[in-house]
Design a protein around this nucleic acid. Structure first.
Lengths: 335, 335
DNA sequence: GCCGGTCATGCAACCGGTTGCAACTTCTTG
DNA sequence: CAAGAAGTTGCAACCGGTTGCATGACCGGC
């Protein structure tokens, strides 16, 4: 089944019109008579015409392609990057809903040269950035060259750029309120990196909830990890040593919560009887832990779609949007 | 920092040569004098020239872009797709090592129209396909239109196309030999889908190992799942009901092994004392289970690189390659 | 001193779309 | 009935690269 119809010039010949007319007809231009459009579209469809996108991109000077910038948490991709995987599905959905393509750009987070390597070559129209150790230098580079992008992260105070983020204050608050409500008295906070603004907001919301319940958050019951799976266990162990009487813990990511629960079990604590655990994210694994994890849902697929949508809207209208995705407490067994 | 140098015509002007000379110089053509090349390259580098790829693609009629075709196991991406995530890292590495880009194409596996939608538009040069329920119809569509592709899966008997696959026979054999060696006598097989050729090879290798050890594989100790996490638990429970005296099980994926171990624990069996468990894949999670999972390593990052490499080699030379990736037993605690 | 060969470079066409502007119909209107 | 408006379509330039072929410079050999 060889294709004989490859270009709009072929279609033009068959329809007895010019290239321009075919181009306009296929783009539904108001300049062309409805009748002509219908005829041309019929011919195109009948011959399975597929437009040549590199040519169109060259003409339009836009690639209709977005880059998802990622890097493995460790050397290779692993469960530690499960959040990235889950949100990628949503991003792919959002991107394709608007007729855009999604390019995967795996980078060394210490570099920024990929920005120009992908934008100036016209390969992509903009970038989507997830959580990364070096996000600040990335953002600065893109701002300096006015490259379109959206990040998963907090709304900026000084500069203007697109963001999508979970409602971290509300998330921390929900977790705190729940633990207070079920009667816990010595509640711990196992956070992500303390310099992370998202983590700070969760802390603020969490603290507010405890204080509203007449409780305090003692420093020995606070520890900081790095979001990634293994750190949950380490930090949980530290907290247990400092505060052996802890009876609940709010862990800033489901991945950390999994290993934290392992450590609790190893140390002879029952979950949730002795120590209640609340996670964060509602990754797919939280349903498969024993006991099943109570957690703050980030609505990850929706967040992915919003990332795509926000960036595309910016590309098309120049509108800078800072979206907050609502969170929700999912009560399972661990708290 | 605005860019004033955008096209090779700009460079040509600055160097006092023609467009063609610049084009040839940047592509290291032997037609151009070394001295001239050096001068042009210096100017290009100095002005941070980045070539316009849509234009080049239009001219060369190749996109230097590969599509990774994926679909979520369930509705959204989840741990069930962890294999896809981990291999994606390797694919991205391999692809970028050859100067190609990686496009993510999320499809409904029941359709095949994406093949022409991506190839005929010149967006991608070829496809990389992972395990999928409808792979046969996909393969047939691509073969019919002689579209370049590589799949993760077994070497075809009738047709010729590129494949990369783990050594499933050897993998099954390693698992069987190990369980025999540690003295188990009533060994079970918890497979993936029975119609899957990879699963059949693992079964063959496993059976061969048991028989070499003077053992048989009774039908009541054989069960079939679907690779995905939840099915491991279900099928494990079935096997336990049919054969309560089972003392070891070879599970065809780490994901299924995780839930199988949960069920074993729920049913009061200790792992590995009462029932030894061997998984398959060596996903990152296998290190984080309790007990840590003994498993057959697929060398996933390497497999990803090989997928990219095999397809690119085919695109550039037309060579059809069927690669087998060696496997290896990783002994941890569960067996 | 002329000729053929080698080497380096330029000209111009081409890849397959998009689009400003001109041109042609047909219709309306004074 | 002429003139202007409105509605369609075509011409040709342009997007920014690549490449076949022509051209011109310089060389050594006879």
């Amino acid at each position: 089944m060889k294709k004989t119809v490859q270009t709009i010039a072929d279609i033009a010949r068959m329809a007895g019109v010019s290239k321009s007319t075919v181009s306009r007809a296929l783009n539904d231009s108001p300049l062309i008579a409805e009748e002509t459009k219908a005829r041309i579209r019929a011919i195109a469809h009948e011959h399975h015409f597929q437009i040549n996108l590199p040519a169109r991109r060259l003409s339009l000077k836009e690639s209709r392609t977005l880059a998802l910038v990622i890097h493995a948490y460790h050397k290779d991709f692993s469960v530690a990057d499960l959040f990235t995987l889950e949100i990628m599905g949503g991003i792919a959905n959002g991107v394709s809903a608007y007729g855009y393509d999604l390019l995967i750009v795996q980078v060394d987070p210490r570099t920024t040269d990929w920005v120009h390597a992908y934008i100036d070559t016209g390969r992509v129209d903009g970038f989507i950035l997830m959580t990364s150790s070096r996000k600040k230098s990335h953002i600065q580079t893109m701002l300096d060259s006015s490259v379109p992008f959206v990040i998963w992260g907090p709304t900026p105070q000084q500069q203007k750029y697109c963001t999508v983020m979970g409602d971290n204050f509300a998330g921390g608050k929900l977790a705190g309120e729940h633990l207070v409500k079920i009667g816990r008295k010595r509640i711990a906070f196992l956070g992500g990196p303390p310099e992370d603004l998202e983590v700070q907001r969760r802390y603020d919301g969490f603290l507010a909830a405890l204080q509203a319940g007449g409780q305090t958050l003692e420093p020995e019951r606070v520890g900081w990890g790095d979001f990634c799976d293994t750190s949950g266990g380490f930090v949980m162990r530290e907290i247990l040593q400092r505060a052996p009487d802890v009876d609940a813990v709010f862990v800033n990511s489901d991945l950390m919560a999994v290993t934290a629960m392992q450590v609790l079990r190893e140390e002879g604590r029952r979950v949730p009887e002795d120590v209640a655990v609340v996670g964060y994210d509602d990754l797919s694994i939280s349903r498969f832990t024993t006991p099943q994890l109570t957690t703050v849902r980030q609505h990850i697929p929706m967040a992915g779609r919003l990332l795509a949508q926000t960036l595309i809207q910016y590309l098309q209208t120049g509108l800078v949007n800072n979206v907050t995705v609502p969170v929700e407490l999912v009560e399972r067994q661990s708290a």
